[in-house]
Design a protein around this nucleic acid. Structure first.
Lengths: 354, 354
DNA sequence: CTGAAAGCGCTTACAG
DNA sequence: CTGAAAGCGCTTACAG
């Protein structure tokens, strides 16, 4: 490593010198704080532009004695599904990377089957007045109430995992559900022989309001509509999550339609279907969602053939980082940030980066 | 944002106070510089361990007036293939992110069809004595000579894109070629009907020594060996890169084996095969490698069905960053860092992160 | 509306 | 082998 070229003034000091003001005033302009005359401001901005000045982030963070408080608000991991362990890990990774830099994360959780738990925690978040919030807005109505309160309190927020369009969120970071269904349909099209049928299975307690599953189903159907083949699709909604109910639902469908060759489960509950399918005398191709331990086990034993996955860990990681960048350095964020749609198989899961 | 809790001394100063020495001495111990008595060193190390001290990277980079010089050494993008534009972009991204922090990148390129260009540039790199090198070691012998010289000069290096096992590289960042071939074989197994055959096509000037392609073919064959089906594989090596030669090679194979339903091209030259296949009266499923514009166009028109891709941009980006972290902060690196094996289709390419 | 001075947590010469 | 002092490029009170 060599020494840096000994140089003249640069950065804030150089700007101050050229403008004939102090560094403090330049700082005020850079951070758009008030208390600077328009004339001085314009002069300084012109010099900043001319010099194409880029602040030294190290110096910035070091000198700033501020602590940024970020609240995260996601479902807790339940016995039913470990899906949210991924995002939680992403949040913790971001925390570890960023903590030493005067950031404090406050993690809040709600129960996905309990709207009241959401409302209660939401209240607690508003009370602590964080500098920003990362939110997975599962319950539509309650989420809208919450972000309306955030807007009023001037607290910026980022959505992850699912979007609520037309709101003041800084950003949405998560899957393109429709497109992932479309991708699944394309994949399935290679797997079907003539006269074969595909079974779509939605498994959720509240399918009426569950946008996730419906958007995926729409995407899936769109593919076959495009090819004039919607008739090959059979569909079942299963409203109970216990294995017996799920198995009964699948069994009935397979009984009625003996030509079903592929089952597409629109969420991570595919492992419950796999538990049944593996006992069948003939092979049924199984496609589902999400990198969960149960699912990977079935992928490994080739009962599940493909899993579609959208980087649950990275979603949350990016969400925290984006908020931090925005709050600490005023970085602009993209309003929509779709995660890649990954196809996981037995061969590539080991190197999958969540 | 709230104020930080007003605190006592911390960091280097607190360690110095407890050890009864100056900050400069603590600094010497942290960076394992010599000129400290064993006794003092042990005392300081004990305190560091006790406090679980983590240095503030911002302060570290800010205070250090060193410039880190990193050389990158990859093939130039040619008319034949734009593959190396991806890694170059990755290098430039890393540069943009890290430049302001006193890092200087020096980009060297060689012609993939010209060993002499490699040797010449390698000499130039050794002459400038960088602090670290990111190397894509295409030519085996020449690369070994080069890294032997680097070892002698004490210059650390990281491999990307292809590995040379058993060397002193800090790290390898790139694909798991064997496993990607195995994945391709699994994918193909879904696409073959009874009595169908699959054609493996290697296209390269020097296939004898081209480890890339052979490792992929091995992985591919391993899958069918496991299933006792090696007989369904037909194989062609094509040693010329012009479209006419490639088309002639494919045409001959298809003529001889009318039951070929899938063609697996072991590298990015799949677009040349696509140009021929799209003119055939019947559909042939086509699988190849790499996110190149030509390939994506054929993916879009459904002539190419799947592309396997291993994050060319990210490989190079990670390589530069890893070197930087190692040189500037002494961060330990993983010896092997396989990139995810991604399956690209018409539906998910738009959101693919290279 | 503006500036002088101190300080963030480190590292770097320099002197002894 | 060790330390005092200055400095990296910013931001923060405080004073005017």
């Amino acid at each position: 490593m060599n020494k840096k070229d000994a140089g003249e003034l640069s950065g804030v000091k150089e700007i101050a010198r050229r403008a004939g003001v102090s560094a403090a005033t330049v700082d005020r302009v850079i951070h758009k704080r008030k208390g600077v005359s328009d004339k001085t401001r314009d002069r300084i901005n012109a010099i900043i532009a001319e010099l194409n000045y880029q602040p030294n982030l190290h110096a910035q963070r070091l000198a700033s004695r501020k602590v940024v408080h970020i609240a995260t608000f996601i479902p807790e991991s339940s016995d039913e599904t470990s899906f949210w362990e991924g995002p939680l890990k992403g949040i913790e990774d971001a925390e570890a990377e960023v903590m030493q830099y005067s950031v404090k994360l406050h993690k809040f959780f709600y129960n996905q089957d309990n709207r009241k738990s959401f409302v209660k925690q939401a209240k607690a978040i508003l009370k602590m007045k964080p500098d920003g919030i990362l939110l997975a807005p599962s319950f539509m109505e309650e989420s809208v109430d919450f972000i309306t309160a955030c807007d009023a309190a001037g607290i910026p927020y980022v959505f992850m995992d699912s979007d609520i369009p037309g709101r003041n969120n800084l950003s949405y970071i998560g899957p393109d559900l429709y497109q992932s269904g479309f991708l699944a349909a394309h994949l399935v099209s290679y797997l079907l022989r003539e006269h074969d049928k595909v079974l779509i299975v939605n498994i959720s307690k509240e399918i009426d309001t569950d946008h996730h599953l419906l958007r995926k189903e729409e995407g899936f159907r769109a593919y076959y509509k495009e090819h004039g083949q919607e008739h090959i699709i059979i569909k079942r909604d299963i409203h109970r999550l216990d294995h017996a109910s799920i198995e009964a639902g699948i069994a009935k469908a397979l009984e009625r339609h003996t030509d079903i060759r592929v089952i597409f489960v629109t969420n991570s509950r595919v492992s419950a279907v796999a538990a049944y399918v593996q006992r069948l005398p003939h092979k049924v191709i199984l496609i589902g969602y999400d990198f969960l331990k149960e699912n990977i086990d079935y992928l490994h034993s080739r009962t599940i053939d493909f899993l579609i996955c959208q980087k649950p860990l990275q979603q949350a990681y990016k969400g925290v980082m984006a908020l931090y960048q925005h709050i600490a350095f005023n970085t602009p964020l993209d309003k929509i940030n779709y995660m890649p749609i990954d196809i996981i198989t037995k061969e590539n899961y080991a190197s999958y980066e969540m």
